[in-house]
Simulated scan of single mutants.
Amino acid sequence: MSEIIEREKKVFIQFFNRYPIVIERAKGCWIFDEDGRKYLDLIAGIACVSVGHSNEYVIERVREQAEKLIHVSNLFYTKPQVELAEKLAEISGMDRFFFTNSGTESVEAALKIARRVTSRKKFVSFTGDFHGRSMGALSVTWKEKFREPFMPLIEPVSFAEFNSLESLENAVDGETAAVIMEPVQGEAGVYPAKKEFMKRLFELKEEHDFLIIFDEVQTGFGRTGEWFAKDIYGFEPDIMTLAKAMGNGFPIGAVAVSEEVHSGIQKGDHGSTFGGNPLACSASLATIEYMEQNNLLENSRKMGERFRKGLEGFDFVQDVRGFGLMVGLSVSDAKGFSQFAMGRGVLVNATSERDVRIIPPLTISREEVDLALSVFEEFAH
């Protein structure tokens, strides 16, 4: 057992179940442990490292910003914050942005905004949805084992069955402030919303006048082969939450709103000391620029398709799903599959007893995809 692992047990709050690997460094799609062994990383810091580990373009931009200004708080204006908001408006089609430090903070802000703008209290979420671990985000997260120890949470919240039209219709009403959903459920194992389900959701919005929040914390910034999963479905939410790949691993998130929603917000409704600090915004701008310059949305689509086609050829794989480089598969023993792959130098994430998630950096090459598939083929035998 590593000395670092033993030291961690004595000083760190034991919230996490970790892989028994101490990571020392990483480059591109590869990470290296303290003993020098390398692993092909198909987890990417849980879909965060979008343009590859230790990306030199991002590092240089962060270094340049760190030499000028790291933090002054939101009592003042800073250029990187405004430039990032302008860039996000360009690629997302949303109108206004507020910066946070994480996905769960983005969800908290979104829930507050929805209540303020609608003057309603009720939220509707879905079976399988994961929105975060803080008290508001936890309230709209499906898994009871996450919620039950911390009751009472925010109320009222109803959970409709994901992709069930009847359940959705029964859950929403004139008291609903907002429906929050992952267009593609990530922590559940990569399960996309059906297009007819999405269509019906927006029809019900017109009927009951609630807001729609898209949680794109995991699906955003090229993960699905488009800038955002909403672009696949062709529907525009009222509010959108962002984080993860937004800064290539640097902690940053955002909540985006339409101009109409923004008109109902008042100064003082929300705030953040660190949210949108110059260093984080510079990291995010550099990440987006690198994605544009290197056609990573197209690479996400092509390499994701290569993964899915390869996986569909294995008898032990029961189901393959997803968009771009957000790939889910079902097997009889997900944990056993992930441990087998790790033992052969490939890291994947088992999200349940039978579901596996593949979410590598968007820079992954054809050769690296084929290497992973060759390891998976070994599992079949």
Rank of each mutant, 00 (worst) to 15 (best):
Q266R: 15
L242G: 03
Q65T: 08
V255P: 04
V346A: 08
A47K: 08
K27V: 06
V51R: 02
K145T: 13
G93I: 04
S352H: 09
E353D: 14
I21V: 14
K302T: 11
G132C: 00
P192G: 07
I154F: 12
E305K: 13
D173M: 10
F16I: 00
E206V: 02
I359N: 10
S258Q: 05
V348D: 04
V190I: 15
L311R: 01
R63I: 11
K145Q: 14
V11S: 12
T78R: 11
F202R: 04
E148M: 14
P251C: 09
P192H: 07
R133C: 10
E86M: 12
E203F: 10
L373F: 08
I154K: 11
D33H: 06
G276A: 09
F32R: 08
R7V: 14
F150W: 14
I154L: 15
E292A: 11
F130C: 07
K244Q: 11
F126V: 01
N101V: 15
S50F: 02
M342A: 15
P152A: 09
L69D: 04
D33P: 00
S284Y: 01
S139E: 02
D355M: 13
T104M: 09
R200S: 06
L84S: 03
L311C: 10
R354S: 15
V22E: 06
E175A: 11
G222C: 04
F221C: 06
S73Q: 11
G345E: 03
L165R: 09
A254L: 02
G328P: 03
L373D: 04
L138D: 00
E166M: 07
F197T: 05
E3V: 12
F228A: 07
V375R: 06
N74W: 07
E378G: 14
S139Y: 07
L201D: 01
F340E: 01
R200T: 00
D95V: 08
M303R: 15
E305M: 01
E289P: 00
G268M: 08
S365T: 15
F274I: 05
V190C: 13
L279P: 08
G336A: 12
A160I: 02
A160K: 03
G132E: 06
